[in-house]
Write a protein that binds this DNA or RNA. Structure first.
Length: 248
DNA sequence: AAGCCAATCAACCGCCGTGAG
DNA sequence: ACTCACGGCGGTTGATTGGCT
């Protein structure tokens, strides 16, 4: 006997969210806060699975989300945390305010993984990849020799040399990150947020709102209404304990 | 201009841990 | 102790976009 589906799938909409659906979801959550996700679509008038609503909110509509590529510092932190935690994206994301696990996972798979490999570092173990012995040129360089392609050969040598120096850079970078990171824990011991860490003073509470317009712009949808809603209902939110918990 | 391919990222799927009954 | 529903997580998929030929 299999598990019951999380919701009735018949007649539910799938695929990309429309601006109209976003509007409904945001309006509902701003008015009611986050309650039982299973009930959200019904109450908000959405033909979506509760899970889908939660995902849309946490990964895209939440007003405290940052947008755009990760900064150098964030990237360093992700690499460092990944070396300690592995693919525990939500744990990694919890150390990067405004970033979601999905975003970090995607960024890792599309950018960092590639970058580390290029530098001769195994992205899973964070150790040097099994390399070709120094006296044996890499295959591409060997091919260049075979073809007598001196320019290509120069390029390969240049690449190999810069890979070595990049790898040294990365090693020292990781050491620095480990030494300076405020995060100190072993693999199975992830610190929980203390109450003072998420109960933000009211001045900080406004920070997400200042970024909201830009987020709306960057995500391409017409989300000005969300910003307006957010502003107009902020006083309500400030009294809402669950919101404080979720946002900070 | 058109077709192809790779990169990107939002969204989905299915499993797992947890807590209530 | 057990079952079940729920939220959360990580892996994967697929639509879209941009670059190249």
């Amino acid at each position: 006997m299999g598990r019951q589906p999380c919701c009735e799938k018949v007649g539910l909409k799938k695929g990309p969210w429309t601006a109209e659906e976003d509007k409904k979801l945001v309006n509902f959550i701003l008015t009611n806060g986050q309650c039982c996700w299973r009930a959200v679509p019904k109450l908000a008038g959405l033909l979506r699975c509760g899970k889908s609503c939660r995902l849309r909110w946490t990964n895209y509509l939440r007003p405290d989300l940052k947008r755009g590529l990760l900064s150098k510092e964030e990237e360093k932190m992700v690499i460092d945390l990944h070396s300690q935690l592995g693919n525990r994206w939500s744990k990694i994301a919890s150390h990067l305010p405004g970033r979601t696990d999905n975003e970090i996972k995607n960024y890792w798979n599309t950018h960092i993984k590639k970058k580390l490999r290029k530098m001769g570092i195994d992205p899973m173990t964070h150790k040097p990849l099994p390399s070709v012995p120094p006296d044996e040129p890499p295959q591409q360089a060997a091919d260049a020799i075979d073809r007598g392609d001196s320019q290509k050969l120069d390029d390969e040598i240049e690449t190999t040399t810069s890979q070595e120096s990049l790898m040294r850079d990365m090693e020292s970078l990781l050491e620095t990150a480990s030494a300076t990171s405020p995060v100190h824990f072993c693999t199975d011991e992830v610190p929980l947020l203390q109450p003072h860490e998420f109960a933000a003073p009211s001045s900080e509470f406004q920070t997400p709102c200042t970024e909201w317009q830009e987020s709306a712009y960057l995500c391409g949808n017409d989300l000005d209404f969300i910003y307006d809603e957010w502003e107009s209902q902020r006083s309500v939110l400030e009294d809402h304990e669950s919101w404080k918990f979720e946002l900070f």
